[in-house]
């Protein structure tokens, strides 16, 4: 399904600030596999997602989707197959546009935009149906500008937008990280309902280790631009957070000092 080969991304190459964000990362995802990625700040998780989405162009290596190489395609050309939910709820939706207008944009993801009406009455019925599944009351607010919604509502809407037209690959980049715990939980439940249970191939970055082990089929840990741990199947089933911390120590040869990771164990 997704095949990443020896991907290298260097920021500010040749300058004093040069930083290798991805160091020959290779990764294969099977169709329908839901994979979680954890790692500290600067481990390269987000960069990996952005290289797969085409927001960043990697210096070396290839990205293939269903056997087709997309390494040099710009992000908007990959969007037909790949959808991306960002950490910042403000990024996934257009604030001045209404709920239905945002949905209409997502309904045509990857299509050529034509000179026909963006929203037909039949679309509205469909939008309401799908919004109802969020159980946030948004079906009553089709004509509200999105800027009037809360962060959680906007993120839920962004999730719905990614699934309005089923993608081949979903990239979730810490999409609950900037929400309060309760809202984050709601959005996580929606993630299970709309994405995981629909069998959409997914890469989800999270800073919550427990969540990383609980959700999906496979967990990857990144450190300094490399994948240092990759568990799935029965091995993963019995894994606890403290195992994960130990394994991190073994694999990286360093103490796991990222407070954010340790503190995020609970919840």
């Amino acid at each position: 399904m997704l095949n990443v080969k020896s991907l290298t991304k260097i920021f500010y190459p040749g300058s004093i600030n040069e930083r290798v964000a991805l160091d020959r990362v290779s990764l294969s995802l099977e169709k329908g596999q839901f994979t979680t990625i954890i790692g500290g700040n600067g481990a390269g998780k987000s960069t990996l997602l952005k290289c797969i989405a085409g927001i960043y162009q990697a210096e070396e290596g290839t990205v293939s989707l269903n056997g087709e190489e997309v390494t040099r395609l710009p992000d908007y050309r990959r969007a037909a197959s790949i959808c991306h939910v960002f950490q910042d709820p403000m990024v996934g939706t257009a604030a001045s546009l209404t709920v239905e207008e945002n949905l209409a944009l997502a309904l045509r993801r990857g299509d050529k935009r034509r000179l026909r009406w963006a929203i037909a009455d039949s679309n509205r019925v469909f939008f309401q149906e799908r919004l109802l599944s969020l159980q946030l009351g948004l079906e009553e607010r089709l004509n509200s500008p999105v800027k009037l919604l809360s962060g959680g509502q906007r993120q839920a809407l962004a999730l719905l937008m990614t699934t309005l037209k089923e993608p081949k690959l979903a990239l979730l980049d810490e999409h609950t990280a900037s929400l309060d715990p309760k809202t984050a939980n709601t959005v996580l439940e929606l993630t299970e309902k709309l994405i995981e249970n629909q069998g959409i191939t997914t890469l989800m970055v999270t800073h919550n280790m427990e969540q990383a082990l609980k959700m999906g089929h496979r967990t990857i840990m990144m450190h300094e631009g490399k994948i240092i741990l990759d568990v799935s199947g029965p091995d993963r089933k019995n894994l606890t957070v403290s195992d994960l911390v130990d394994m991190f120590y073994e694999a990286s040869g360093e103490e796991l000092q990222q407070d954010r990771l340790l503190l995020a164990k609970g919840r």
């Binding site: 927001i55 403000m90 257009a94 546009l97």
Partner: peptide, 13 residues
């Protein structure tokens, strides 16, 4: 309004 979002929806901004 939001160029990043529009590109992620497949539009060449």
């Amino acid at each position: 309004d939001n160029e990043i979002m529009m590109r992620s929806q497949g539009v060449n901004t």
